[in-house]
Design a protein around this nucleic acid. Structure first.
Lengths: 134, 134
DNA sequence: CCGCATCCTAGGCGATACTG
DNA sequence: CAGTATCGCCTAGGATGCGG
C-alpha cells in the first residue's frame, strides 16, 4: 500500500524541504494574500507602483494592499527572479515593475491552479455545506 | 498595454476573492507548511493518524508536525472534500485517512507546481544570490 | 512617487497536558 | 490512539508618518 514512499522520501531529501528552499518558499508565495494577484496584473504589462496598488485594490473585494506589503512582495518576487524593477532617473523617480520570462511562467502555473480550483468551486462549497451540517 | 485588465477584473469578481472563497483558501492550503506534504503521502494509500504523523516527520527536514496541527489540516481537507475520514468501532478506535478522487486531483495539481519549481530551482537560487550581493 | 521605520493585530503553528 | 484545550511564539500583514 505504501510502495512509492521510498521514492517520495528520496525526492523530498534531494530538493530540501527547508523553509527557504525554493520549492517551499515559492509554494508559500502562491498561497499568500497578494502575490498571485500581483502576478496576474503584471502579466498584462508594465506597471507603476501606485497604479499597481490601485488596480489591486479594485480587484480585491475586501481592502487595499498596504504600501509596505506591496513593496515587500515585489521585492521578494524580484529577488527570486520573477519580476524586474525599472527605475528612471526622473525627479521624482519613476519605478515600474514587469514580469521576467520566468515570472510569466510562474504566472501561467498559478493561473492553471486557479482554473483548476474554479472548476471545482461548486463541488468544494457543496462539500463544506455537507460537512458543516454535522 | 493594459488591455486584458477588464477581463481579469470580471473574472475575479465572478469567483469571489474573499478569504473563504475556494480559490483563495485552496491556494493558501497548498502554500502552507504541511498540507502539500500530507497530500503527497496520502496519494500512496490509506494512512492511520499516528503513522501519517511519523511519516511526515521523516519527510520533513526540520521538525515533526504537532498532533494538533495534523488534526487541523486533515479536518480542513476533509471539510473541502479532498480527504475521507474512516473510523472503525474498535477499542481503541482506529481512524484512517484517504484521498477522495478530487483530493487525488488536487495532489496532481500540487505535484505539477512542485515539479515546475524544482525545474527552476537552480535559476531561482542564482537570482537570489545575485540580488543579495547588492 | 516611492520606500523605509515603527507600531500593532490576527492567525498559523508548536508544546504540553488532559479526555474517551 | 485520536482528539481537544490551553498556552505562548513568531510571522504576515495593516496603519501611519518621515525622507529622498
Amino acid at each position: 500500500m505504501h510502495q512509492t514512499i521510498e521514492a517520495l522520501a528520496a525526492e523530498m531529501a534531494e530538493h530540501g524541504t527547508g523553509r527557504d528552499a525554493p520549492v517551499r518558499s515559492v509554494m508559500a508565495l502562491l498561497g499568500d494574500r497578494w502575490t498571485t494577484l500581483i502576478l496576474l496584473v503584471l502579466a498584462t504589462g508594465e506597471w507603476r507602483h501606485a497604479e499597481l496598488k490601485r488596480m489591486l485594490a479594485s480587484l480585491s473585494a475586501e481592502q487595499a494592499i498596504s504600501q509596505r506589503v506591496l513593496t515587500l512582495k515585489l521585492r521578494t518576487l524580484e529577488r527570486d527572479g520573477f519580476v524586474t524593477r525599472i527605475v528612471t532617473a526622473d525627479v521624482p523617480p519613476k519605478v515600474s515593475y514587469r514580469l521576467t520570462p520566468m515570472g510569466a511562467d510562474l504566472q501561467d502555473q498559478a493561473r492553471r491552479t486557479i482554473e483548476w480550483v474554479k472548476s471545482r468551486d461548486t463541488m468544494i462549497e457543496a462539500a463544506r455545506r455537507r460537512f458543516d451540517l454535522i
